[in-house]
Design a protein around this nucleic acid. Structure first.
Lengths: 352, 352
DNA sequence: GTGAAAGCGCTAACAG
DNA sequence: CTGTTAGCGCTTTCAC
């Protein structure tokens, strides 16, 4: 394991000059720089991260805090961040807080304080005020992904607009009986964004002059399985909606599968729209608001690196909204005419 | 940011003693230890990872190399590793190699050499001999997850047995016309394990006295979407199998959805079995060999930590096989009797 | 533009 | 059991 002293010796310069040449910080003549780089390459020199970090205070390492990596959105965001960082020579430290109750505590009051991180990307993290203060207290740049975090720069889609867009698509098709599958707030893995998708739903409903039926706003948990069960109950009831807006594609697909299992045709008997752009939506022809989480992650990482390059001058706190793409496929259509409704024999689904 | 000198001063001991008390390495009297811990807590002391790492050579940091984190198996493995490490106070550095062609190169010849890692967990990584040598050359313990890596300790299921188990289930039900959806080898994201699942398929077929039809061994890519398309082609052909063994649950679900879209009933017209234990299998009643990747990840991490605790004495290279669970649900049944075959009007599906 | 020297904050001999 | 003393390998003033 060659050290910088070996490199310096081979290039016949001091370690100081070698360091300057290798890092690009500080003046070095082109000729010496060339000699040093050659020596470094010849020896296969790789600087010790610990030594460099200790001496300089910079670690070339970004911390990513995420509720879990085995959920679609988080996985995609982490992928986006990881690839951006890998390109730029930065390490990525991953902290998952969703697993056990005290992991989040531990991460915030121990892991993040080890001075190993140049910056932090909290993903869809719901923090108490105290916790947010702790995060800020590490004195490093922060860029969040997902929900907006007061006081810090964040990257994400406009949740409310996405919800309104999806819902407006349904009302525009003429649907008047629309249910909404939202996701409950789980203290362990809060996404900090559901509320506003629901807000968009409510706004679009109001704008179409429709009333939101409380019993048709159903809390699920972002998973396909739970949504399947809830949609089955919803759609098996005597009165059922002609359309469902699910706050995630996985829940939307669960709804489609539930409808199919009840003998309902999509979109003939039921229209379904989701949010995400999940690969799963493809085979069932799901209409959705695609949100490209990789890009969000990559964007957050890029902003952070940019800040670090400008010597840590933090951008002013704000939410950077990234664009979504409305993908119309075959799960949405005009509502069935009252005469042609469904193969089920239940009472007329036309509500009050 | 309190340093160990502050702690030592407050506890009225030397920094050496403070270090010993805090790390548990070296002798300290109970009384002084208590004083040091109290002082540390009072000051909110968190040791600098860089300084500790530089001085000791240990970084309390494990590197995880994974093709990507946005695939079910990898995400679950990473989750398992992450939680185990978080519990033990270890950091996790994540490297994704699947994104761009040279990321794997970069990780192997730069990132891993920064002396920031105490150990490495390569997940389902397919390496050339040279690359494997590089990995070993970092001189740190290695425990792989997924496919077996010659020369290193690995944790994973018995792929061949899993394939044979799934296939044997089908032959046991009386199926004679069985297709297999396998996953091709992609140089960027190789899983290093598909071959053996297919090997299990072939063995079970042979044991049942059945011939493997080459045109019924179909290469897909582990994704639901691709499997859906290939299954549709397979099942729309004049002669079709009565059962499909898919090498992953996502591919199995794709097959089920394709069958449904063709008007085939599962399991009446077609039995489908997968491998994984993917959540998605639940709502479609998929019979599968569950493999619990979180446990595999956690196990690998635990073994690594154990090695590090024993001062790096590496366990002898071998493959540790973890148990699978065969979950029978509703996607498999006895094959249809020739008379009752399907609603499709095509030629008799009974082969040869 | 370059080198000498002083640390970064902690750990690990080595004495005592 | 505890303190003193060197570093770990690099970066960074500060002179020149």
């Amino acid at each position: 394991m060659a050290s910088i002293r070996d490199v310096a010796a081979l290039a016949k310069v001091s370690t100081a000059t070698a360091s300057r040449a290798l890092s690009g910080r500080g003046p070095v003549s082109p000729a010496t720089r060339e000699r040093v780089l050659r020596a470094s390459a010849e020896l296969g020199f790789v600087p010790s991260a610990n030594a460099a970090g200790l001496a300089s205070g910079r670690s070339r390492n970004i911390g990513v805090i995420v509720p879990g990596v085995d959920r679609w959105f988080f996985a995609k965001v982490v992928r986006g961040i990881s690839e951006e960082l890998l390109d730029q020579g930065y390490d990525l430290s991953l902290y998952t807080t969703g697993g056990s109750h005290d992991h989040q505590e531990k991460v915030l009051q121990d892991y993040l304080l080890r001075q190993r991180l140049d910056a932090v990307v909290p993903v869809a993290l719901e923090l108490t005020t105290r916790e947010r203060e702790r995060l800020v207290a590490i004195g490093r740049p922060i860029v969040g992904v997902g929900g907006a975090m007061p006081g810090t720069l964040t990257v994400g889609i406009d949740q409310e607009a996405a919800g309104a867009l999806a819902t407006g698509h349904l009302t525009g098709l003429g649907h008047r009986h629309i249910a909404h599958l939202t996701a409950g707030k789980d203290p362990h893995r809060d996404f900090g964004l559901t509320g506003t998708r629901q807000g968009g739903f409510e706004r679009a409903m109001a704008q179409a002059g429709l009333v939101v039926r409380p019993e048709w706003v159903i809390t699920s948990d972002f998973t396909l399985n739970d949504a399947y069960a809830r949609a089955k109950a919803l759609l098996a009831a005597p009165e059922r909606p002609t359309a469902v807006f699910a706050a995630s594609d996985e829940m939307a697909v669960g709804t489609i599968l539930a409808a199919r299992d009840l003998g309902l045709r999509v979109p003939d008997d039921l229209s379904v729209v989701g949010i995400d752009g999940h690969e799963l939506g493809d085979v069932v022809g799901l209409t959705t608001v695609a949100q490209f989480p990789e890009r969000q992650g990559a964007r957050a990482a890029a902003r952070l690196l940019q800040q670090l390059a400008h010597d840590g001058a933090p951008d002013e706190p704000q939410h950077e909204t990234v664009a979504t793409d409305f993908v119309v496929r075959s799960s949405t259509a005009v509502p069935p005419s009252p005469g042609s409704r469904s193969r089920r024999s239940a009472a007329s689904p036309s509500p009050g």
